[in-house]
Nucleic acid binder design. Structure first.
Lengths: 347, 347
DNA sequence: CTGAAAGCGCTTACAG
DNA sequence: CTGAAAGCGCTTACAG
């Protein structure tokens, strides 16, 4: 008659046996050493995830603390960041996870290397990291992956390099929809005030714009495509430039709402009415589009949803679920407000 | 000739040697076992204290773990909250303290009682709590105090009840300064679009306004003092009401920037120019005052400083310093921008 | 890249 | 009550 099997304590050695490797190898994986074959690493990580192995330190932690996710942002002074953060907070609240905030512009660039940071996250029993910034490079993000720290990137500018899980929006489709809306209103001379040339989301929006123009057989005047920055100053200067053209555009598609608000401010100064004299579409669709006068027609990014998706991905990664995809793009949608109308008849 | 003494690692064995006992005995003392002679225990404890011995667990924690402060906010969708949070983040960064974010509107009302929450904060080794909301009542705040959790309140509306440490702004002086500015420009018919009647910061601003008016010997028309909410809708409706008066005011002091922006939007709709036809002063002085067209003259609250002061107070409380005062009020200052000018000559 | 062997620091079981 | 000895779980150094 077998005695009550005492549940064998979950030690590193047990994990090693289960994974068919030696204890030192498991130790190396846990500590993020480089001298482990990728194949071996993933096998061990799978066992770690399945058994829920915890180091003595983590065991002690998990008795007292709740799990937390660290959110790294460049700044809180953009509506973009706040909306994403709101989404993360909401999803975190539902899953009873705490949110640690790290704002690089206020708290200084992380003093720790990604390796050290990953170590800390593991030691403290945190569950992961949501990065809403371009501040981390591929090597750093890779360090998280190697150490098994669930992480997800929401980059406002570029999709992250490498194998990292990331969440974005359908920028190309959004650009196309904004432009189609203007075309349907009857506009033909539509300018594009873009963001920085090298930034991928800007390129996608531009190509969406070009696709819509091309599909309607409208020729694009190269001088009415002006790349620049994502700041309102670019809208101010951009509008000034566009007003120099012999054949002024009757509509402007701005690559984000900040640019569009700059256009709006400069238009007011110049006595140009929006939308009567010129139509204007922005991109992002944060509350600033809603609050402006006139309220701004804009391609809304599902920023809260993106934050929620990032947190959900962290949770799946924690549970060792297979990821359906490394990259998720959520749909944008055009919100028509007061800044767009048919072109003036005299035009 | 002695070699370079390598600083010997401070192990339990070293402590044992130092105390003239065996390693197991030190282990027992550390773990609070009872089978140690009182005399031996105190000798070992003395060495532990003198050498500052830390168990591997503690060592690891003090290398990696940092203390954290929890910030409780109602919402991130106000410039007020963001500015305060920016201040907290900055001061926390300097002191190497982590910031845990709790947004009640997103994460739901705290499911834990204040007692439970205090217990958790203590267990997790956090250092304290900054409350930027009216969500906690006196009993709850008192629970923190009783359990020795350092806390500070920054209430946008009312100073907290009881003995709680709080940080605020000089609302009365701010109201007086705003009104004096308008009086100096030559205005006499100055309206006050206020916040909710029962809210203390609103009362202070109103009485500052009344004090300035009184000091200049100007009689106040009771109908031009309109209490309401701190929202822009109140500015819209308030301006409509004021325009009904036979003797229209030439200037408006709004109890916050949201109200002022509502006034601005409605003025634009009605074709009333600011500041040519009517002058306007707001309160808060966040970036929204800066960005509006025309830029808003406003009484700036030192919101970032308030956040910093709250964090500093937490740190002092941690270190057991005697508090100089339970209530700190930081000075507001008037920022003159484009929305104020002398009254129209015809008035 | 892997793991047997040695090592480290702490804890446990138990003889005195 | 004390400590020599054995043990535990993880890590390190290094041979292959």
């Amino acid at each position: 008659m077998p005695a009550i099997e005492p549940k064998p304590k979950l030690t590193l050695a047990a994990v090693a046996r289960e994974a068919g490797v030696s204890a030192p190898t498991v130790s190396k994986v846990i500590n993020g050493r480089h001298d482990v074959a990728e194949e071996t690493r993933s096998r061990v990580m799978a066992v770690l995830a399945r058994t829920g192995y915890k180091s003595p330190l983590q065991q002690r932690r998990s008795l007292t603390g709740r799990q937390a996710v660290e959110v790294v942002l460049d700044s809180l002074n953009t509506a973009y960041a706040i909306e994403v953060l709101n989404g993360v907070l909401e999803a975190a609240g539902e899953s009873n996870i705490e949110v640690l905030l790290n704002v690089t512009s206020k708290q200084g660039a992380p003093r720790l290397s990604a390796e050290q940071r990953a170590a800390r996250i593991i030691d403290e029993g945190r569950c992961g990291m949501i990065v809403v910034t371009s501040a981390f490079n591929e090597a750093q993000l890779d360090a998280f992956r190697r150490r098994g720290v669930p992480s997800a990137v929401i980059d406002p500018f570029n999709p992250p390099p490498g194998d990292v899980v990331s969440v974005g929006a359908t920028n190309w489709a959004g650009g196309k929809e904004a432009t189609s809306h203007l075309l349907e209103l009857g506009h033909r001379r539509i300018a594009y005030l873009g963001g920085p040339d090298g930034v991928e989301c800007n390129q996608a929006r531009l190509h969406g714009y070009l696709a819509a123009m091309g599909a309607s057989g409208v020729t694009v005047d190269g001088r009415s495509i002006i790349p620049g920055s994502f700041r309102s100053e670019h809208g101010v200067e951009g509008l000034k430039s566009l007003l120099q053209l012999e054949r002024r555009p009757t509509a402007i598609f701005a690559a984000n709402d900040s640019i569009a608000l700059g256009v709006l401010a400069e238009a007011r100064r110049q006595g140009i009415r929006v939308p009567e004299d010129i139509s204007l579409v922005g991109f992002d669709g944060t509350y600033r589009a809603e609050e402006s006068v006139p309220a701004l027609t804009s391609v809304a990014q599902p920023l809260q949803e993106m934050g929620r998706a990032a947190l959900r991905s962290i949770l799946s990664q924690m549970q060792g679920e297979a990821l359906s995809s490394r990259r998720v793009e959520l749909a944008t949608h055009l919100v028509i407000r007061e800044s767009t109308a048919p072109p003036p008849v005299t035009a």
